[in-house]
Structures are given as C-alpha cells and as structure tokens.
Design a protein around this nucleic acid. Structure first.
Lengths: 349, 349
DNA sequence: CCGCAAATTTATAACGATATATTTATCGCG
DNA sequence: CGCGATAAATATATCGTTATAAATTTGCGG
C-alpha cells in the first residue's frame, strides 16, 4: 500500500547533482522496489522471470534494473540460498607438468562461461594431508562442488566426498567398489600404443617412466606397458629410482645412468613432457641419436613438442577438453544429482 | 537474561543418537550462543578476540566452537562486512607461454596462505573487451582486489580501477602520468643483457622477437635491445610478421623464412620459451647449428630449458615470485591503502 | 452484481554474521 | 554506603536476498 504511493519516486532517480551515467543509487532490490513502486519480493521474482508475475511488470522491472545497473549481490544470494555458485579446483603441488593446470583451467573456464559459476583455486600444499583442502572446502561451505586430480586407487578424498554426498568430479579413477564420477584419459591405451610404436620403430628393449605408484593412472600405464611388452616378448625395464614427479634434473641423471649400463633400453615411454625432454637430454649428453640409436614416445599435453627437434613421436592428451568435461559434469551433478554412470567419461586416445 | 537459563543446554550438545564425532548441531553463532549461554554478539566478539570480552569467556567460547566444529559462514560475513575475502586473477587468453599462469598462481597461493583470502580465476575471453572482466568483478562485488597481466602503456583497466579507487596490482607498467601499483620484470635489462651476451658470443647480426606492440613490456624490450645494438653498432632486425603471442608454428615458419634470406641474423633473442623452441626448430630444419652458426638467448620461466639440448643461454624470470609479490602487495593495499610508491616493485634480472 | 477461482502482488521471516548503542555487573574510593 | 568509572555482556538493527504464506486484484459464470 504505502509502496504504491512511492511510485513517483522514480523521478528522483538521480537526486544528487552528478554527471549523467554515474547514478549513485544503491543497486539493490530495495531501490528497485522504490523506483518501480513494487514490493521487494515482486521485484525479485520479476527478475527471476517467475511466471506468476505479469509479463508487463517483468519487463518494466528489467528495464529499471538495467537503468540503475542492478546486479544481484552474490553474498546475499549465497547466504539466503545456500548455494555458493562457486566450484573449486584443488591444485596439487608439484604439478610442474608444464601447463597442466593452465590447460585444465582454460577448459574449465570455457565450461563455466555463461553460467553463474566461478572458479576458485584451492591449493593443496605439499606439507599438508591431501584431505585438508577437501575438508576445508566442505566445512567452510566454500563451493558447491569440487574438482581434483591425481586420483589414487583408494582415494580418501573420494571416500569422504561420497560419504558426505558432496558433488565432485575427479580426474582419474579409483579402484573402489562404489562407483563415482570421474573423467580420465586412457593411460592403459597410451602406454600400450606407445610400446607398440616403439617396437615397430625397431626398439629392442623398452623402458617406461611411470607416475608415482600411489596414483591410479600409474597402474594403468604399467598395465598397458606390460601387456604390450609381454605380447611382443620384448625385454623391458621400468625406471626405478625416478617417477614423472621427480625433478627433471633427477630424471635426466637417472636416464643417463641407465643409458650407461650394458645393454640399455633403446625405446622410452615418457608419460610427461618434462620427463621426455630430460630423457632426450640424457641421450644427447650420451651422444646417442634420437630416431636411430634410441626411440621415444611422449605424452604431449601442449603444443610444445611440435617445436622440438629432432621430432618426437607423441600421443596427445587434451587436458583442456578434460577440464571442460569435468566442469560440465560437475555443474550437471550439482544441478540434478544424476546417476554416476552417466558421469564416467573416459577420454580415449 | 533468558539466555542465562539456557546454560544447561550444553549438555544437549548431541541430542540425536548419532555416532560420536558427527555432531549435527548447526555450527553457527546462534548455536554457540545457546550452548554457552551467552549472547550471539558476545560469542562473535569472543571469537574475534575482542579485548572487552573477558579472557575466560573467550577461551570457553573458543573451546565450544572447536567442539562443534564452528567455522564462520563466509557468505554471512561477506554480506555484513562488505568484504569478500577474495582476490581475483584475470587470466588472459593466449597465454600459451607454458606454465605462465601456473607459476603465477603458485606464487599467489603461497602469498595467500594463512590469510582468509581466496583466489578466484576470472577468465578474459579473447572475443570480449579487456575491460569486461574488471567491470564484472567490480559491479558484482566479486573480489576485494584484482590482479591482471599484460599491461598496456595506456591501459584502460588501470584507468578504470584508479578512477574507482579499486585495489589492484598489475603485472607490467603503464606510461600513464598517474602512479599506480605494479610488479614488473626488468625487460629492458633482459633485452639489453641478452643482446650483450649474443654479441660477446660472436653474433654479428641480431634479431629479436617482441611481444605484441600494444603491451608496455614490448616497448621495454625493444628499447633495451635498441640501446645494446646501437651501443655496439651491430646490425639488427626486429621480427616483423610475428610476435611472442603468435602461434608457435607461425613463429617457426617466419624464422625459417628469415634464416633463408641473404645475410640472415645469427643472434636471436626470444622473450619466451615457446618462441625460443620455434626458433631453434627453424634453425634445425635449416641445418644450422646452435652455438656456432647461430646463437640464442631466451627468457626462461620454468625449469624447461635446463633439459633442452643443445644447451640454450637463458635469462630467468621468476613468475612465481612475481605472483607472490603481487599477492602480498594486493593484500597490503586492500588492508591499508598505502602510498603507491611502496607498491611499485621491479624484479630485476 | 455476487461470489469464487485464477492471476498478481505483498508481508513476513529467515539466512548468519557484525556494527552501534545500551545495559548490567564490578570495583575503587571518599 | 554511595558514587562514578570501568569492565563485561547484551539488544537491536542491518547487510541484500529469497522462501513461504497471505493478501489483494481481476475475470467471469450465473
């Protein structure tokens, strides 16, 4: 009632003497209500395009909202609705795998584009338990969903998130009985194909540098590798002292040592770009020629290897696509809580 | 008064029959007030360690808070105080400079560690005006401060942010009359030193690949380069068709063409890792030998070039350090609004 | 032109915290 | 014993939004 009387307030839209375009009205629903002579509730629903608000009213409100530059206060929405409109990407330490995070983030932001969702980066510091970031996000209600990488066979994060029913998508699989959503690259196929390529290129003894054994994808790679070498009956070796997470310098030295042994491998599978370069450097330092003395297949996740000479055989993993898929799946999961089975995406090579 | 009576409520801490450790009380100030028999206000201030709350009370509140797993609701705090406890990093498109974003993010998260601040990534899509992300962040009150990169001499973002008095730190400088905070690498020195190195290595004609001309640091690099070549009276060339932002493939082709000309340059300065690799690839394809036929100095921002063979001369820019500095400066700026001069940090080589 | 349903709009009460102003308890001192 | 000063705690209002329930207006058959 009393609001009705205030309809004329619209004329006081710029009461202060200010240059046009710098309206100093506070852009809130309340202001909007005063300007339109409607109730705050009505304005709110009008902007939400609620069908029970007359079309004409909705349009009018929308017009005035635009005029005063109204944008809903995310904090207030968040407090009221309980939704943060945020998803969190847990960034693991030691991800020197060049551009790993960047590619994924690029894909993610593409997936979030046009949605109200934002991406916050939650770091996982190497001196703290892996569960910390996840716990932190849940307890502080920091996000509506979580993304993380480097999944382990019996991943505690997965267990906890499943237990709490908190939306998440992980990059990589577990070996848990319970199904859960994930996005993964077919690292079995990668290693298998890589081995096949090396063998048909003439390599006579293969070597693979694996990720740290605690990660599920290390098992997949090993399995793919083992299957290929066994099928072909080719001698092989698994780089022992060193993993894809090792410092590049260490990898190079380890590979140098390996190449100095009697009957060293001549075919190398590197699951990352840095390890590939380190292996190449070791071979170079050893005076070995890539393509004749030794062969190498690397996993490529950036445009980098297109510029490496001598040319290196690579298998491409599209991390931006993985990020985009993870983002989309997570949003879907947050919105509808669908069956897990729909959400298990395996990016094949 | 009536609250006093409720002191006994502490015994109803877990009224439901639930396994210990899964308290289902809502962890809010209200709950805490009921449990302690204090007023909500008191609890709030107790947790804030306000001196006008008795020490004994503060400790008691803190104990109970811990017991029920209380953590303040960020949305509520944000709504009430107007602070978001968020800083936003605007990620530019086309940052293929491997790990550029990752390094910076790593530094940033290190700087934010232990603070209540979070990092959100606001993408700047290449098909939208550069001002959009900044406008977006300010109007939606998405963050308390903004970080961005690739600063231009007359950067619109800087102008807008200064005008609005919104806290920000940019990576790179402007040429605006007004002072403003920034963190920058000394790209003048980089190019100057690189040219000196090439000349003393025996290069007789220099070439530099610059960033797109719209960025301030392109001017710095050019200036450093020009100063060095003029001082030494050495012939030079500036890669014309191609910039550090060009696709690596294009850079390689351009360099290949350049090397095919009569009396081509034999000393190259590459402001980024990708362009360096592309240049090396072009030389390789041309049959030229690095270190004798041609010389190259690259800017290194990752451990990558330590594994590149033949070895490449590099000058290191520590982007993680830059990120950390930017983070710290921004927090300081948000907190105290200090003099700009304290906030202008130039990372020298 | 009454009355009842459908179409609109509104009032009220949260969400969980904090700023401001006030009240109540405690104490020293004349 | 009472007074003012200090210490400690409290009440109230508010941030900007939305969910719920209630109220009003409108339309239309009878």
């Amino acid at each position: 009632m009393s609001n009705r009387k205030k309809r004329g307030a619209a004329s006081t839209l710029m009461p202060q003497t200010r240059p046009y375009g710098t309206e100093d009205v506070k852009p809130t629903l309340k202001t909007l209500a005063e300007l339109t002579g409607l109730a705050v509730t009505t304005v709110s629903r009008a902007l939400a395009d609620a069908p029970q608000i007359a079309l004409e009213t909705r349009q009018r409100v929308r017009r005035v909202a635009e005029e005063i530059g109204y944008f809903p206060d995310r904090a207030a929405q968040r407090l009221r609705t309980g939704r943060t409109n945020v998803i969190s990407l847990v960034l693991d330490p030691h991800e020197e795998i060049l551009g790993y995070a960047t590619s994924m983030i690029n894909g993610l932001t593409e997936a979030l584009r046009g949605t109200p969702y934002h991406l916050v980066i939650t770091p996982h510091f190497s001196d703290t338990p892996p569960l910390d970031p996840v716990r932190y996000i849940m307890r502080n209600r920091m996000a509506d969903g979580i993304l993380f990488t480097r999944t382990e066979p019996s991943d505690e994060r997965v267990k906890l998130l499943l237990e709490r029913g908190f939306p998440f998508i992980c990059h990589g699989r577990t070996e848990l009985a319970t199904q859960h959503p994930y996005v993964d690259f077919d690292n079995y196929a990668f290693a298998y194909e890589a081995a096949r390529k090396l063998i048909s290129a003439g390599a006579r003894k293969l070597c693979i540098i694996l990720p740290p054994d605690r990660f599920t994808f290390a098992h997949h790679m090993r399995h793919g590798f083992m299957t290929a070498v066994r099928e072909a009956g080719v001698p092989f070796e698994i780089a022992g002292d060193v993993t894809l997470d090792s410092k590049s310098e260490e990898i190079r030295l380890a590979m140098f040592r390996l190449l100095s042994e009697t009957s060293p491998p001549d075919g190398f599978i590197c699951g990352g770009e840095v390890s590939a370069l380190a292996t190449m450097a070791a071979a170079y330092d050893k005076g070995l020629h890539l393509g004749s003395d030794i062969h190498l297949v690397a996993k490529q996740t950036s445009g980098l290897f297109d510029q490496i000479r001598p040319r290196v055989e690579t298998i491409y993993e599209d991390l931006a696509a993985a990020g985009a898929t993870m983002g989309r799946l997570l949003l879907r999961r947050i919105a509808e809580q669908p069956q897990v089975s729909e959400l298990q995406v395996l990016h094949s090579i």
